[in-house]
Write a protein that binds this DNA or RNA. Structure first.
Lengths: 189, 189
DNA sequence: GTCTATAGTAGGATAGAC
DNA sequence: GTCTATCCTACTATAGAC
């Protein structure tokens, strides 16, 4: 395993604590203690508590954005695109489940510029998702239930994976992908 | 202390703020300001910030608990029980969407006794849900995908309704119930 | 029922020694 | 890179006047 930079260690430790108590309830003293150092020492590696949060969230949001763009621009069926979106969420969850807690629950504590940037990315992501479902309905690949409800229920499940997956000790990633596709898509296909 | 209605006003105002920023990031000054009074005045009606949180969460958790118990003890099919659970979540969401934000995101800030009580109720609720799905699979009413994934994806969607429903201006509650049943259950039936 | 004033504590962040 | 010491601000909550 490669030695990560001290800054990345701080961000990883913060992700765990933010997941447990939320950004606002975690103090720099808590974070320092979890790393076995004093709070003042953190500032040799990071500029502010806010910088930690924005790094966690913006990196993840950009990962989802570029993943979605790849899927949107691919030449496959709407169903295949939805399957690829499910894969994307599972992959990111496996790689950084802790950080996803901040993405989901603490984005509102981002400061002005990053907040706007994040909200734009989230809006575009949902819009892309919605357009894929719409096109699937138009081509009769997907059943014509309310598009909004399909988008909402699918995204709700994928966004909550970070809470659930770490508790499932014995589920293989590929089996999870397969079963998730079944449960999320069989109802709408 | 016969200031019960003022107390409820405080709890309602707090629910809105807790939904927007989370329990830890909302100060008593924020809360007082949103009601047009000073922070010190709040303490004539409530004992502490913590009391506000526990009232919001425990009341809702008990509502879900008694609702689930009614469903578990009813003599209907597993599918009908799942439909009744969906109805329960939609009903509670319509009545108190703001409070559900705290139930979902701020329960970890409850203090010892209420935290244990809440975690017990949540555990029992999920266990009841799981048993209903299991029995449905045993009786071949429900397809035998992973029970855990069905429970997880359905609960994720129902628990996130509070975020989504208020933004849908033109969806009737009965139509919502019908479509939600379709999307959540057609895939597993 | 609300106010002003304030106690007591804890937070983010910085300076400078080692 | 980490420490001790500390600044300044903001928090929850209380006391007592009106």
């Amino acid at each position: 395993m490669k030695t990560e930079s001290r800054k990345q260690e701080i961000i990883n430790a913060a992700s765990v604590l933010f997941k447990e108590k939320g950004y606002s309830a975690v103090t720099m003293r808590d974070l320092a203690k979890s790393m076995g150092i004093k709070a003042a020492s953190l500032y040799n590696h990071i500029q502010s508590k806010q910088e930690i949060l924005s790094t966690i969230i913006i990196d993840l949001a950009e990962e989802f954005t570029s993943g979605m763009n790849r899927i949107v621009n691919s030449e496959v069926s709407s169903i295949q695109k939805l399957e690829n979106i499910i894969d994307l969420h599972i992959d990111v969850t496996l790689r950084n489940a802790d950080g996803l807690a901040s993405l989901n629950n603490d984005w509102m504590h981002l400061e002005e510029e990053n907040l706007q940037y994040f909200e734009q990315m989230r809006h575009d992501y949902e819009e892309s998702f919605r357009n894929i479902v719409k096109k699937g309905v138009d081509k009769a690949e997907i059943k014509a239930y309310s598009i909004e409800i399909i988008v909402f229920s699918t995204l709700s499940t994928l966004r909550t994976l970070y809470l659930w997956y770490p508790k499932q000790n014995d589920i293989d990633a590929d089996i999870l992908k397969h079963d998730m596709v079944s449960v999320l898509l069989q109802g709408v296909v």
